[in-house]
């Protein structure tokens, strides 16, 4: 801990340092760190989609090579874990929406479940729309 973070207080006060492993001391802390870590998987999913678009733009051979590479065990496992992490990321942030955004309908605030529910509905609508787009082709 750097010097500027040293706690003040009376001369004889006992100052405790926060443990490096503080995030393992309580389940909510671990869940928080896990939520933050999901951002890495969000980044990976963006990179994977960009690589997919690049391969599609380069032609059929590169496109097939990209899918062959994506079917390798390492990438399959990575993408499987990524899907789980993305779902966790989405659920945690959607559930936090009512804490951050307060909208009013007339004089009354819109209830939290309605606020979170509207995000889930939008998510479902986009998912169904994309699925329809892919299946109908």
């Amino acid at each position: 801990m750097s010097a500027h973070l040293a706690r003040s207080g009376p001369p004889h006060a006992y100052r405790r340092k926060a443990s490096t492993w503080w995030w393992l001391t309580r389940w909510p802390y671990f869940a928080f760190v896990l939520r933050e870590m999901t951002s890495v998987f969000v980044a990976w999913s963006v990179v994977w989609v960009l690589l997919l678009l690049r391969a599609a733009g380069l032609g059929e051979i590169q496109y097939r090579q990209f899918f062959a590479w994506s079917a390798s065990p390492l990438i399959l496992i990575s993408n499987g874990v990524t899907v789980v992490m993305l779902v966790y990321h989405t659920l945690t942030w959607f559930n936090l929406v009512p804490r951050v955004m307060v909208f009013r309908f007339g004089r009354r605030p819109i209830p939290g479940p309605v606020m979170a529910g509207s995000h889930y509905l939008a998510w479902a609508a986009v998912t169904v729309g994309l699925a329809w787009l892919l299946v109908s082709r």
Binding site: R7, S8, G9, P10, H12, A13, Y14, R15, R16, A18
Partner: peptide, 15 residues
């Protein structure tokens, strides 16, 4: 937790 301990269960909340 997180506060300097002055004595026993008494912490300093000056910060």
């Amino acid at each position: 937790k997180s506060f300097p301990i002055v004595r026993d269960l008494v912490v300093d909340i000056e910060e």
